[in-house]
């Protein structure tokens, strides 16, 4: 006889319940397992832009395209299940996130490999001097994606 550990929701019989949604826990199913969480800033200098788009007066200013990156070493030795979030002016959104209007746009994303998480910011701005900073949040699970 196969032995299991099952905890059902209130009102459901663990001996007969077949709908997994009515179980709190069942040893038949894997779950996500936390490894770590954290926060990281991606910072840079506007002067390090890689491309510029010339102004088109009177409506469009010159804009400067930037790409910046920060990494977090997760130390797992395999590519884990992960999720990333980016902090905006009044929100936190799951990455990837795109935003833009008819002049400005940005793309924020998080990637992983067997050693690191990579947080990337690609955006344009009106500035070519000064500094910028974006805040990201991440969760890393111990589940191995096998990738």
């Amino acid at each position: 006889m196969t032995q299991k550990i099952i905890i059902s929701k209130a009102g459901y019989n663990i001996l007969t319940e077949t709908n997994v949604n009515n179980l709190i826990f069942s040893s038949d199913y894997n779950t996500l397992k936390y490894a770590t969480t954290g926060t990281i800033n991606v910072t840079g200098n506007y002067a390090d832009y890689y491309h510029t788009v010339a102004a088109v007066p009177p409506f469009f200013p010159a804009t400067y395209w930037n790409r910046a990156e920060a990494t977090v070493a997760h130390g797992l030795g395999y590519t884990p299940y992960f999720s990333g979030y980016m902090e905006g002016t009044a929100f936190r959104a799951q990455t990837p996130i795109y935003f833009g209007d008819f002049i400005y746009s940005g793309y924020h994303s998080v990637y992983a490999d067997s050693n690191y998480l990579y947080f990337t910011a690609v955006f344009n701005a009106e500035y070519s001097t000064g500094t910028y900073s974006f805040t990201y949040y991440y969760r890393i699970f111990k589940n191995n994606t096998g990738l």
């Binding site: 790409r67 990837p96 998080v110 990637y111 690609v122 344009n124 990738l147």
Partner: peptide
């Protein structure tokens, strides 16, 4: 590089 849904690849930049 491993990406999540709706992502462009790691090297993307306009």
């Amino acid at each position: 590089k491993v990406a999540t849904p709706n992502s462009k690849d790691y090297t993307y930049q306009p």
